[in-house]
Design a protein around this nucleic acid. Structure first.
Length: 150
DNA sequence: GCCAACGTTGGC
DNA sequence: GCCAACGTTGGC
């Protein structure tokens, strides 16, 4: 089983929203690296940190479970959708999503600022300068170290 | 709201 | 294939 970190702006969709709906298609990803992680490397049962970006505070807010194999992102086909991409066609989908399930909300937000103070997390891709990827793999030892902060 | 970082697009 | 222009992400 692998571990992941997935970012969302809580103003659009946060951990409380996921707690309410239980399960959600993680749509709107329009970055090839992030897509490849979902399509090629994620498996049902994998766990992911739910990370609040562009938030106050920004940081890890909860845990969710990958609930199924990747499938084409239908919002890419919809001209009315915010993330419509005319280059993604039904017979040749360009963008994919995975469904995620709520696992639990953390007792508190583990902030980005706090993660940055931990030497054992220093080599996490999340903390590398300029990294904007919205889906990232997390090493098991980093996963454990983050949850130990809770 | 600003801006650094960085990915994508498209002209050549 | 290069690279300038442009758009987006996301921290602050």
């Amino acid at each position: 089983m692998r571990y992941w970190l997935m970012k969302s702006e809580p103003e659009a969709f946060g951990i409380d929203d996921l707690a309410r709906v239980g399960r959600e298609p993680w749509d709107g990803i329009r970055n090839y690296q992030a897509r490849n992680f979902m399509r090629d490397d994620m498996r049902p049962g994998d766990l992911a940190l739910f990370y609040h970006s562009n938030a106050d505070p920004t940081g890890v807010a909860g845990i969710m479970r990958i609930a199924g194999e990747a499938r084409p992102d239908p919002t890419a086909f919809d001209p009315e959708a915010k993330y419509y991409d005319p280059k993604s066609r039904q017979d040749a989908p360009r963008w994919y999503l995975v469904d995620v399930e709520f696992e639990r909300k953390l007792g508190r937000i583990i902030t980005l600022a706090e993660l940055r103070t931990r030497p054992e997390l220093a080599d996490m891709p999340l903390l590398r300068k300029g990294n904007r990827l919205s889906i990232l793999p997390v090493e098991p030892q980093h996963w454990q170290a983050i949850l130990d902060l809770e």
